[in-house]
Computed example of a mutant assay.
Amino acid sequence: MLPVALPDTVRDALLAPLVDHHCHGVRRDDLTRSQFEPLINAGGVPAPPGTTHFDSPFGMGLRRWCAPLLDLEPHAPPAVYLARRAELGAGEVNRRLLAGAGVVAFLVDTGDEDIDLLSAAEMGRHGGAAADEIVRIEQIEQDVAATAHIAVDYLDGLAEELSARAARAVGLKTVIGGRCGLDFEPARPSTGSVIAGANRRLSDPKPPLTDPVLLRHLLWSAIDVARERGLPVQFQAGFGGRGPGLHRTDPARLSELMDALQPLGVPVILLHCYPYHRAAAYLAGVYPHVYVDVGLALPHTAAASARVMDELLELAPFHKQLFSSDCHGVAETGYLGALYYRQALGTALLARLEAGEWSAADAARVAHMIGSGNARRVYRL
């Protein structure tokens, strides 16, 4: 799995238990092929007729690396893999793959309110790890909008729920980039515009919130809570799901907001970021409160993941990088996220060792920082 030429100290550091600082629950029920395949695609959509999502970098990696954990030969055909998965049952598959990831703590985004997904506590039990909650602020807004009757109730409810949920969490998360892009006006919206937006929202509260004014109000309210409680705020950027257009999720578009947040001291963590991970690395290098990962990109680039990791290491300070798998839907995503992270970082470190740029002690120290140490510090674990 790791390059054979790595020194033992570096190998041990890479294989040490990880803190997965951003993941989701996985399905607890047995899945048909038509249910399984969209869950291994970043867009969450079925493959075109006559094709399969197994014919992708992620699908090839799944058959190579997950099959042996289910007692199959590497590269087992998709039909054989899925038949074995069904034979073992979802519970056993989840236990094998989540435990096999070698994670010591899962920080779980609980924004997907689906009873078929494992809770944060269940993720921990299946993976033999600790588990804590990351609160998705847009889900809080959805819950409040469904019960509020007038604007003042809506605004008071947002403030109260954000504070209450943050008290039980280790961080907050926003998907504002997927709702209106990251090129939003960074300033706090005016009171009048927020009240007007709240009235519009309550006239039709069912769809996900896309109003830029209310999204900005929600974000700034969350930032106030994060500052009060010493919590980081995660921003989803770049690759991952569908939104207003990939070009509008470039984290470089957050530069003005990062300027505004720097005096507040609220840690900001840029998630995934691919293909804009170099811009994210730049932001992490110039702003003391900005951190970065390339989580979702690594299992989806699979055999090419070392190149992505190498590009992140070009500029981002090593104390600013974190590991996440973005595990979601099926446990294979968590296992491959950890596996390709270790492979990619191991390959990148070996290149620096062979060039004489780094010592083995430096490489081991960086591996420990990115794998768990930085997350423990930022999230105060």
Rank of each mutant, 00 (worst) to 15 (best):
L18Y: 01
L209E: 06
R188T: 08
G127W: 05
P7L: 06
G171S: 02
G241D: 05
T9N: 13
Q234A: 06
E37N: 09
G192S: 09
A86L: 12
I134R: 04
A297Y: 00
S56D: 04
Q262C: 10
Y291D: 04
P46F: 08
E311V: 01
V330R: 09
V19W: 09
V144I: 14
M123L: 13
G356S: 02
D12M: 07
P186N: 08
A375K: 02
K320Y: 09
L162V: 04
A367V: 01
L345Q: 04
T51H: 11
L88A: 11
N94K: 11
R216K: 09
N94C: 12
V266E: 04
Y274D: 12
Y335H: 12
G177H: 07
H289G: 05
Q234R: 06
R28K: 15
G371W: 00
S325E: 05
T51N: 09
E228T: 10
G111L: 12
F106K: 09
E185T: 12
F239V: 11
D109H: 07
L39M: 15
A146R: 11
I223D: 03
G241E: 08
L254G: 07
E141P: 03
V26L: 01
A164D: 08
D183V: 06
R84F: 07
Q262N: 05
E314P: 00
H22C: 05
E185I: 09
G192A: 13
Y276Q: 03
G178N: 15
V268S: 01
E113F: 14
A105W: 11
V308C: 09
V290G: 04
L349D: 02
R307Q: 14
A131I: 01
L39T: 10
R11M: 07
E314N: 07
G91R: 10
G102R: 11
A76N: 07
A130V: 08
L39R: 15
V330W: 05
L312G: 00
E141H: 11
L2K: 00
A130M: 08
G61Q: 05
R229A: 14
S325W: 05
D116S: 15
K320V: 08
P3S: 02
L214Y: 01
E37R: 05
A360K: 05
A99P: 01
A304R: 14
